[in-house]
Design a protein around this nucleic acid. Structure first.
Lengths: 230, 230
DNA sequence: CATGTGTACTTGTTAGACAATCGTTGGGCG
DNA sequence: CGCCCAACGATTGTCTAACAAGTACACATG
């Protein structure tokens, strides 16, 4: 059974709703979330609202100190680098290990197909399948804790993307081609090459994101030779 | 200032105390922790106790379902494998990246010295510096999220060690020698070799731990040729 | 022996309250 | 006029008390 029935607590339900509102941009960076506001707007008691907030704080989506109002995290360039480098650490090693068995998850192949299909939509439509491509690779190693760690990053990654959704930072064709190449390298048992390509892939996204946020981009932001878009 | 003053909330203080009691073995595997028990024993309100429990649940040290009493996690062989493999994923990649700059953290060197110094003590005395050796390597990459992820594993790793503290699973000399060799390989820029040695190092600990817990150990449990202890 | 029921225990959630703390605003003083 | 300090409001941390809802186990029943 894939999706057993929910049986969510009120706290979880509110946390889930807040989470989606953060991802959708309904709650922007730095926006304040007081316990009483949430309590009244969801018509629950303050401790319930408090617990929801604390859940999101633990996930890294909200930020707050003692006696201070919780706010949606405001990710600066250095946080973006931190997040993407952490991704690279996890994912490149996963690629190496997957290459040893030369197994590629079907979900990753499907995710890449969905990226191709979403080219006609808005830039934001690419985010979901792109994310799914990477998570499916992580999940392929079948390690509960690795997957759990990666999920905690994914939340923040999506947060980055929301902030720059209007900018056309990523060329879909290039994403597609690199994903495809990564899968081929895994299938060919060339883990080292796959890891290197992934580093490039993530490094470029990272530095272009940093630049878009007002930071100074590193050399990784450049397109590979001969693949500059229109 | 390394350790700024605490200013801990009551919830944090109780969580910290429970954590140390779990690590010290005062609270054994599967032991029940009801909210009211904790509330009365620490002389706080039940919501406060509840919050403390939820913190530990989030850390993976306690386990509980809805409407069920929280219990100290009972790590089975499959969990031990999961934990150690997750460690290996993180650490081997960290080693590779450290080898690129050939930098070895002084904390790791010191930790290894402390392991040598603890040989005369109980087997449990080795745990702390051993842990410190590994965490210092992780922290050396200066990535906030990588460090945070690793910390979440460390709690469970220590839990494993508590359960097998009475057994003499690890030969201190071998640990020491392998740690030393890993540092040398990093210094020499041989990241691949360092990662491989680490895999062996962790794999052996992992499988011997599994065997000690009643599982069937894999081939990694064996000592390397020519290094069988007395 | 299997099954259903009931009771005690535990957790989920709420309400209201008070203390401690943070941010800000306004007044007093140089 | 500008700056420092005090008082205030807003917000969070914690508590007490209580009820609802769910679980687990013993018990009685078929």
């Amino acid at each position: 059974m894939a999706g057993r029935i929910a049986a969510v607590s009120i706290v979880d339900a509110i946390a889930a709703d807040l989470r989606s509102r953060v991802f959708s941009g309904d709650l922007g960076s730095g926006e304040a979330l007081t316990e009483t506001d949430i309590a009244t707007s969801y018509e629950v008691a303050r401790p319930t609202a408090k617990a929801s907030i604390e859940k999101l704080v633990a996930e890294g989506l909200l930020d707050r100190g003692t006696h201070k109002t919780a706010r949606v995290v405001d990710l600066g360039p250095e946080s973006v680098r931190d997040i993407y480098l952490a991704r690279a650490y996890l994912e490149s090693e996963v690629l190496r290990r997957l290459a040893r068995t030369r197994e590629i998850p079907q979900e990753a192949v499907q995710a890449n197909r969905d990226i191709a299909a979403s080219k006609s939509g808005t830039p934001l439509d690419v985010v979901e399948p792109d994310m799914r491509f990477h998570t499916s690779l992580i999940d392929a190693v079948a390690n509960e804790r690795i997957s759990r760690m990666y999920r905690s990053l994914v939340g923040e990654v999506r947060l980055c993307m929301v902030r720059v959704q209007s900018l056309h930072l990523l060329d879909t064709e290039l994403i597609l081609a690199e994903h495809q190449k990564i899968l081929e390298l895994i299938e060919g048992g060339q883990g080292e090459a796959a890891a290197e390509l992934l580093d490039e892939h993530l490094g470029r996204a990272r530095e272009r994101l940093v630049a878009a946020m007002g930071g100074t981009a590193g050399p990784e932001a450049e397109y590979p030779s001969g693949l500059v878009p229109e």
